[in-house]
Amino acid sequence: MELQKNKVCGIDVHKRFLIATILFRDGKKDTQRFSVTLEDLLKFRDWVIENGCEQVAIESTGIYWHPVHSVLEGKIDLIVANSYKIKHTPGRKTDVGDSEWIAELCLNGMIEPSRIFPKDDRELRRLTRAREGYVKQMTQEKNKIHQSLDSACIKLASVISDIFGKSGCIS
């Protein structure tokens, strides 16, 4: 059984700002709004640490959680929660209400953390995915050139084995 926490922080993150609620076991709350500039994120981190939060929970909304994760990584226990699994009841929602809801789920140990790869692995995955994208774009462009040449009745394949290889280079 997971140990109960006494003080946690729930974050509702958006493109330009985040709403954070520190929730105490006795029900006391402290909510603040921060922009997502580096300066404000560092103020947010300091605020969380100064208040002695045991854990921070954030909803994995698009890519907006990445800067918050980067600032808090290694400083405090952070849970990135799957948005689908922590949805609140339908109806009138507010940013403050959402951050309080996330904090309440965190306080009671009801959030299953998303899998976040270690920093080195994340960087390798980012580079690998970027390379895959570049190779795909290059292949698409080569296919367009082949198609344009074929539609213009320029049949280089009968003369050159690969127009983009050594035999296709003009020296």
Rank of each mutant, 00 (worst) to 15 (best):
S70H: 14
L156Y: 00
R33W: 05
P118G: 03
E2A: 06
I160W: 00
V36Y: 02
L105V: 05
T89I: 13
I58H: 01
K166F: 01
V56S: 03
S151H: 05
H69Y: 15
C9W: 04
F24P: 01
K43N: 11
H69L: 15
T89P: 02
K155N: 12
K136T: 07
S114D: 06
S35R: 10
N82F: 08
D121E: 13
Y84F: 09
K144H: 09
T21I: 05
P90F: 10
V71G: 03
D77K: 12
V36K: 04
C9T: 07
K155L: 10
S35N: 12
L18K: 05
W65H: 15
W101E: 02
N6I: 03
F164G: 00
Q32P: 05
I22E: 05
V71L: 10
P118H: 09
T21M: 11
I11Q: 02
R122D: 11
L124M: 15
V48T: 14
D40E: 15
V96C: 08
I145K: 02
L127F: 03
D12P: 07
G74Y: 09
I63T: 14
S151C: 05
I19L: 07
H88W: 10
F24I: 07
E132Q: 12
R16L: 13
H88A: 14
N51I: 06
P113Q: 13
Q137M: 13
V80K: 07
N6K: 09
C9P: 00
K43F: 08
S35W: 05
A20Y: 01
R126S: 13
V159W: 01
K43S: 12
V13F: 05
A130K: 06
R115H: 13
L78K: 02
I76R: 01
C53K: 06
S171G: 07
P113V: 12
L38C: 11
K144N: 04
C9D: 05
I79C: 08
E100G: 02
W101Y: 11
F44E: 08
T94R: 13
I116Y: 04
Q4A: 07
L23G: 00
V80M: 10
Y134S: 05
I58V: 15
Q140D: 09
Y134K: 08
G52L: 06
G168P: 00
H14D: 09
A81K: 04
E54Q: 15
W101F: 04
E112W: 09
R25Y: 11
R16S: 14
H146D: 01
N51G: 02
